[in-house]
Design a protein around this nucleic acid. Structure first.
Ligand SMILES: [Zn+2]
Ligand SMILES: [Zn+2]
Length: 823
DNA sequence: AGCACGCCGACT
DNA sequence: GTCGGCGTGCTC
């Protein structure tokens, strides 16, 4: 490029802020000195409204008509944080989920590398001189004192120390007298590349004459290094020889070897491998699915497959063969599994088939490990990425296949902005990359079912379990008839009999306690007071461990009070069943039975979850009693009995997906039975045996899906309309309701004529969470794209209006597009 | 968001 | 007369 003064370069920058009306490109001049290597995705430090801000380069306009253009201060982190394809995906996410573009960039940038601009202030003169100069100015005196003791201070830290007002005015008045220096700095990233010292042998090391002249210790080092192929980490080499650093340095000086720092990837330890690569031969149905997927991958076309396979039908085998095909074509693959299923066993299934080629991204990784897995994927060291939701954004250059296992899982939906659903974004990413998607599930969500019917997705079915093993037989027990005149038992006669039989036959059993919409609680026997969370509108759950009460929504814990805090009466009593109660009940009726309990209580520590499952798998107990966490992924051949203690507690939840969820959960749990050689039996206890969801469990799932779709269609719910939940929150109860009402009026005018249906405002079913009062306004539309601009406008108008007529403290309005939970 | 400017009450 | 409150405007 010619460096003539006229050929100025410009960049468009998206400022890294969540503020909606700043979510647009700002144009800056790019000084020639720093313009080398700047690309889309580069991070730029730019002057922005009397301060410096970070932003992302999104474009290079050839010229600009703006009169006052500032220049980029500097480019941070040489290589760009994302590429053009990622930017395209981010733009789609921002426009679909109605979030600021900068927010969607956070999904694709390297993890742990985010930075913030901080303002540092320090004294420009001696403290005593400064004190004299500011005498009488209280704020400035405070600033001087703090800066004198701390040296240089972050302005935010100063605000915390002496208050925001004095900090700002004090610093400002001092700045006018040149008593303080202000400078901008970037925070350190949480993760950095790790370098280790590596020793390389030079040609001299193979020269016998030279080596034989070396002192003994040094010769040992060289021998060992050669034995290890001429390259080894310095620390490992020294340790194995038992030599000191001095001898190594001496060798380096003689030119026998070279020592250099090299970047290494940290490998997260996933636990011991449980076995070798078992290569199953696909059965006919599996092979048919594999062939179909392979054909499309071979053609290099984009396509979405809905792989509907009953529990135990071997969906993973289809995934693995499809991945093989993608790799064979020189492409890469992403496999998403629900966080809870991301166990060492799951990873092992892929790692054993693609040894050394699998990156794993999950929440248990430390920042450094996560960064390295990400980096390894970007640099082509791994070709398969397995992970939970956010692994969808793994930086693979040439994606051929994206697998979404258990595609119906609600955990694929993010509950923080951007509130994306990985299942849906996967389809978009694949479409942009010309890749194939496999959505796998035994119980696909109705959205996917409907899209398959419309011909948007191609359906592949695995209607039978592998090796022709039968699906478990399902029995429904009507709990209304079990109690007789007395109390309804926790475990019915039928349940106990069936469980005993399985255990006596030497098999294992699972008892499932549905916690959703049903939990234990503490209540005063005298006045009826129920112990609730201070910050949420829910009752606290009693946990025997530590005699504590815990809020399952915000994590608040509290000791059980000796007396009722409301009336001062006697001790509180526990109501509702926990796994412990189930165990007690079971022991009473089946003496000598051995149990393992798995719930939030028993799995508090990091690996307890996997450890307990491992014990059960190893046959150390006959019965596994657990909550939601045992519903998925468990594949234990000796489990022949599954008992569902309370099938219908989640049916009554105020959520249009309550039936669908219950159906999915019950199917998943039932699917744990009879996966081995002996057939399985499932007993489901219910108070609603005639409910379509429960009936669907004994056959006729097709009719259930049909009826459910029909009712969604009638009531105008997804998949037949697009849904947006407008969420209004505030720590003040009146502000929340007032604002929700105000927002409704704004929506009424802004959405007028679009045909959108507006419901509410209504207090959210979970009306208070983490100290915030919550209101919902539901917007239904035939076509989201037609109203999305108006929704953004409405939110903007709400905030504008709130500035002149504040409705109260910290009111927030957020938009949840395609909401999954309406609680 | 966050920073500066500007116009009004309550201090010297 | 000035100090500082926060309403308002703006950010290439
Ligand atoms: Zn009481
Ligand atoms: Zn809580």
């Amino acid at each position: 490029m010619v460096g003539s003064p006229e050929s100025k370069r410009y960049v468009e920058v998206i400022i890294d802020t969540a503020v909606r009306d700043l979510d647009r490109p700002f144009t800056y001049e790019l000084p020639a000195e720093i313009s080398a290597g700047v690309q889309v995705g580069s991070m730029a430090l730019v002057p922005f409204n009397n301060r410096l801000s970070l932003g992302y380069v999104v474009g290079f306009p050839p010229r600009s008509d703006l009169s006052r253009i500032k220049s980029v201060s500097r480019i941070v982190d040489e290589p760009p944080l994302f590429d053009f394809d990622s930017m395209r995906l981010c733009k789609w996410i921002a426009s679909h989920y109605l979030c600021p573009l900068s927010r969607s960039f956070h999904l694709v940038v390297p993890p742990g590398r985010s930075r913030k601009v901080k303002q540092l202030v320090s004294l420009a003169v001696r403290a005593r001189d400064a004190l004299i100069a500011v005498a009488g100015d209280d704020a400035a005196v405070k600033v001087v004192n703090e800066l004198n003791s701390a040296g240089e201070l972050d302005i935010d830290a100063l605000k915390k120390l002496i208050g925001a007002g004095p900090a700002v005015t004090g610093v400002k008045s001092m700045e006018e007298k040149s008593l303080v220096k202000r400078r901008f700095a970037l925070t350190r990233p949480a993760a950095n590349a790790r370098t280790r010292l590596v020793v390389h042998a030079t040609p001299v090391a193979s020269d016998w004459n030279a080596i034989n002249k070396l002192p003994g210790r040094q010769r040992e080092i060289v021998d060992e290094l050669i034995a290890r192929g001429g390259v080894e980490f310095q620390s490992d080499l020294l340790q194995s020889v038992g030599a000191s650093h001095a001898s190594l340095k001496s060798l380096a000086k003689k030119g026998v070897l070279e020592i250099a720092g090299e970047e290494v990837l940290r490998q997260p330890w996933l636990g011991a491998s449980s076995g070798g690569a078992v290569r199953h031969k696909p059965n006919a149905r599996q092979q048919a699915a594999i062939d179909r997927v392979s054909t499309v991958i071979e053609e290099g076309r984009h396509k979405v497959f809905l792989l509907e396979g009953v529990t135990g039908s071997g969906k993973t085998e289809v995934y693995i063969h499809s991945i093989e095909k993608a790799l064979e074509k020189g492409k890469q693959a992403i496999v998403l599994v629900p966080e809870i299923s991301l166990t060492p066993q799951t990873v092992e299934r892929f790692e054993s088939r693609f040894p050394g080629d699998v990156a794993v991204l999950h929440s248990r990784l430390g920042p450094g490990e996560r960064f390295d897995q990400w980096r390894g994927a970007r640099d082509g060291r791994y070709r398969v990425v397995v992970g939970a939701r956010s692994a969808l954004f793994a930086p693979l250059a040439n994606i051929g296949l994206i697998v979404i296992d258990e595609e119906h899982e609600p955990s694929y939906k993010s509950d923080t902005s951007p509130r994306y659903n990985a299942r849906d974004v996967a389809v978009v990413r694949a479409r942009m990359a010309g890749a194939v998607v496999i959505l796998g599930s035994a119980t696909p969500c109705l959205e996917s079912v409907e899209r398959a019917r419309a011909g948007l997705y191609e359906r592949l079915e695995l209607p039978k379990r592998i090796d022709n093993r039968p699906l478990p037989e399902v029995e429904i027990v009507d709990m209304r008839e079990t109690g007789g005149a007395g109390e309804v038992p926790l475990l019915s006669r039928r349940m106990l009999d069936a469980l005993s039989r399985a255990v006596e036959a030497g098999d294992q059993a699972i008892l499932f306690l549905n916690r959703r919409g049903f939990s234990n609680y503490m209540q005063c026997r005298a006045c009826g007071q129920i112990m609730g969370c201070d910050d949420c509108e829910v009752s606290l759950c009693y946990h025997s461990r530590g005699n504590m009460m815990l809020c399952h929504h915000c994590g608040m814990r509290r000791n059980v009070p000796p007396a009722c805090p409301s009336c001062g009466g006697g001790p509180m009593k526990q109501f509702g069943a926990g796994t412990q109660k189930v165990e007690e009940e079971l022991m009473k009726h089946v003496p000598g039975v051995t149990c393992i309990r798995m719930d939030a209580d028993s799995t508090t520590t990091k690996d307890a979850h996997w450890r307990l499952l491992g014990k059960f798998r190893a046959g150390e107990a006959q019965v596994l009693i657990g909550t939601q966490m045992i519903a998925k992924g468990l594949d234990i051949p000796s489990v022949t009995f599954v008992g569902v203690i309370n099938a219908d507690t989640a049916l009554a939840l105020p959520d249009f997906r309550a039936s669908e969820r219950t159906y999915q959960l019950l199917t998943q749990v039932s699917g744990r039975a009879g996966r081995g050689l002996r057939p399985g039996l499932v007993v489901i206890q219910t108070f609603n045996p005639d409910h379509p969801t429960i009936k669907a469990m004994t056959g006729g799932t097709g009719t259930f899906i049909e009826a459910e779709l029909e009712s969604r269609s009638r009531a105008n719910y997804p998949p037949f309309v697009d849904l947006v939940n407008v969420m209004v929150t505030s720590p003040e109860i009146a502000a929340a309701s007032r604002s929700a009402e105000r927002m409704r009026h704004i929506l009424d005018t802004d959405l007028d004529g679009t045909g959108a249906i507006i419901l509410g405002p209504a207090p959210a079913p979970l009306s208070r969470l983490r100290g915030l009062y919550r209101w919902h306004i539901l917007v239904k539309s035939a076509d989201l794209d037609k109203i999305s601009d108006r929704l953004i406008t409405a939110v903007g108008r709400f905030y504008d209006y709130s500035r002149t007529f504040p409705p109260g403290k910290s009111v927030k309005v957020s938009l949840d597009v395609d909401p999954v939970s309406l609680l």
